[in-house]
């Protein structure tokens, strides 16, 4: 199995590794870096549980290889918090609206929502549903997730510091 050296940043931290060519990005994040917040649900690009930001855009980390992230900047759910032990406005809104149940799709939902809110700070409900339509959730029926993202958008818009600490 051919191996390749890769360099990338993950949650702002520089990472260098040698990886097999066939290693997916999600397996690299979970197994090599032990960032287990990113989940594998279907491993064929439908469910969205493995979503991460790559250079600011949401991607399915089960559908790209680790070597393809060479030179890129990856943000996982662990990187959404403003600092270790804290949670950001978006994460806090998911708690406030109970926008989750089992938590398994949640990291992917947060990534999809983060990408949406960066591009569209005050989205309509239709835009929220469109943004998360590539992420399957079997617990919530999506309603409280939509509520959570709407709340996060409102709170961010009303805040001077988008990433301010909401550590209850």
């Amino acid at each position: 199995m051919s191996e390749h050296a890769i360099r990338l940043t993950v949650n702002g931290r520089a990472v260098e590794a040698r990886v097999p060519a066939r290693l997916t990005l999600v397996d690299f994040l979970r197994e090599a870096l032990r960032l287990t917040g990113t989940h594998t649900g279907c491993e064929h690009g439908v469910c969205g549980a493995c979503s991460v930001l790559l250079d600011g855009r949401p991607v399915r980390s089960c559908l790209i290889f680790a070597v393809q992230a060479e030179g890129g900047a990856v943000t996982t759910v662990e990187g959404l918090a403003p600092e270790p032990g804290a949670i950001g406005v978006l994460q806090d809104a998911f708690c406030e609206a109970h926008g989750l149940q089992c938590g398994f799709c949640t990291p992917g939902m947060l990534i999809a929502a983060e990408a949406l809110l960066r591009a569209t700070p005050l989205p309509s409900d239709a835009e929220i549903r469109e943004a998360i339509a590539g992420n399957l959730c079997r617990c919530t029926g999506y309603q409280q997730i939509v509520d959570a993202i709407r709340l996060a958008a409102q709170r961010r818009a009303g805040s001077n510091l988008a990433g301010e600490r909401h550590d209850r």
Binding site: R30, T36, E78, E96, R168
Partner: peptide, 21 residues
Amino acid sequence: RRPKEDRRFVAGSGRYVADLA
């Protein structure tokens, strides 16, 4: 009232079986 469980899940700190090594 906020469910007690939610915070660990939004932080990516859930402990599912596949997370165990």
